[in-house]
Design a protein around this nucleic acid. Structure first.
Lengths: 150, 150
DNA sequence: CGTTAACCTAGTCGTCAGGTAGGTATTCGA
DNA sequence: TCGAATACCTACCTGACGACTAGGTTAACG
């Protein structure tokens, strides 16, 4: 719908990695099997995540992927943005260089776009929600209690 | 991006209508010209809005569209939902019959989907934002002061 | 040196957003 | 009563892009 499977699959992989925090790299094939997702397709997503420096990779035998930073420091906004690109509810709204929102409809000098307010707020609420969550929040859906936990 | 031009165009038309609140119906051709949007395409969107009973129509000469209810009582959630269908950030999340969110990944009896929490929150923030705004909020981008206003 | 797995580049395929076209039904003014 | 205006409906087209496959090359371990 609004986000494609890129975000869906990518987030699942990241959540999977977050479950193995700090440990050895995990082979993508193992993740694909565990999550029931197509390996070849995941490779494309990992390329995006790697370019965004959210995951580190080790090639060769016993290689794989691991988080580039602790799960608690990776916001979901970073993850989703790396996978889907700039977050904009509709085409005509995008983020300018200085962080302000630009409406392409306003560039013709026509004056104010009345609907900009709406989309700006929608975008804001999405970004805020994504920023407030980290990978760690997704990594602990089953809180076991044999440890005092991380 | 996340919403298509259906939402963008449709909201523009609705905002346009809100500016003529209560008055005579406005011909779609006039709106299309004013907003610079393709008339034939807008007709499809109006069909959705009409089926959702957000606009009323009058056929024939001097016919056109008008809001079915006062602008202040029409939430943007209704408008967007009528245009785009059910609001869901990704395919696997949808609203069940009783309003609870359902993740299609959980239906295989696999247990909890860790990413559901994320998408549920994103969806929630979008819906909340859309619900908090009404058409009236879009209709007054240029607050004139020759009247005490509506 | 061979196996493993990341990495890269091209494709294919189906769907759907975005828009066009042309007709029919309804209402008004003259 | 006619004809112009306008909503309404169904069908169709087209390009882009999401989702995925295929097949290779490079790097690291044992």
């Amino acid at each position: 719908m609004m986000f494609s499977t890129r975000a869906e699959y990518g987030v699942r992989v990241m959540a999977h990695l977050a479950g193995r925090d700090g440990a050895e790299p995990v082979a993508l094939g193992a993740i694909a099997t565990a999550e029931g997702l197509p390996l070849a397709y995941l490779e494309h997503l990992m390329a995006r995540l790697r370019r965004a420096e959210l995951v580190a990779s080790r090639r060769g035998a016993h290689g794989g992927y691991s988080l580039a930073r602790p799960a608690g420091t990776i916001s979901m906004a970073e993850v989703v943005e790396a996978l889907e690109g700039d977050i904009a509810p509709i085409e005509c709204i995008s983020e300018g260089a200085d962080g302000t929102l630009v409406c392409s409809r306003e560039e013709h000098g026509d004056g104010i776009c009345p609907t900009k307010l709406l989309w700006a707020r929608v975008r804001g609420s999405i970004v805020t929600t994504l920023r407030e969550m980290t990978l760690q929040d997704l990594a602990k859906p089953v809180p076991e209690r044999n440890e005092t936990a991380a």
